[in-house]
């Protein structure tokens, strides 16, 4: 069991994992779109996105579109690598459970 990988705790949270997965499939996404896809509250969503931003997994851009403020989130290269590693670790753990 010593060879089994550890799951990245920053990504392991359900909402953070959902957010990174969503962001991996689009070029950039607006805060309200992420909120509607995850059905989360503004406060919780903002807090989880901040954790991902602090870890360097997402980049934030604030701008005005048609005079309305928009907060856009984009997955960074290290975020993509972290998600890939997380999926590989998950598969390895599940594989070991099947073989046990």
């Amino acid at each position: 069991m010593a060879d089994l990988p550890e799951l990245n705790p920053v990504i392991h949270g359900k909402l953070r994992l959902a957010l990174l997965s969503l962001l991996s499939s689009v070029e950039e996404a607006e805060f309200t779109w992420l909120r509607s896809k995850t059905a989360s509250t503004d406060g919780n969503l903002g807090a989880q996105l901040l954790k991902l931003e602090e870890a360097g997994y997402v980049a934030v851009e604030k701008k005005f579109v048609q005079r309305k403020p928009q907060t856009l989130y984009r997955m960074t290269e290290s975020g993509r690598e972290a998600l890939t590693e997380y999926v590989q670790a998950l598969k390895q753990l599940l594989g070991s459970a099947i073989n046990a």
């Binding site: 392991h12 994992l17 997965s21």
Partner: peptide, 25 residues
């Protein structure tokens, strides 16, 4: 690994798949 932990890992994997397909849609 307990059955509960194994199920949780499977849930995480299916969450990733469903969110990626939701974003691509």
């Amino acid at each position: 690994m307990s059955n509960v932990e194994e199920q949780e890992l499977k849930d995480r994997l299916s969450l990733i798949e469903s969110m990626i397909s939701e974003g691509r849609r």
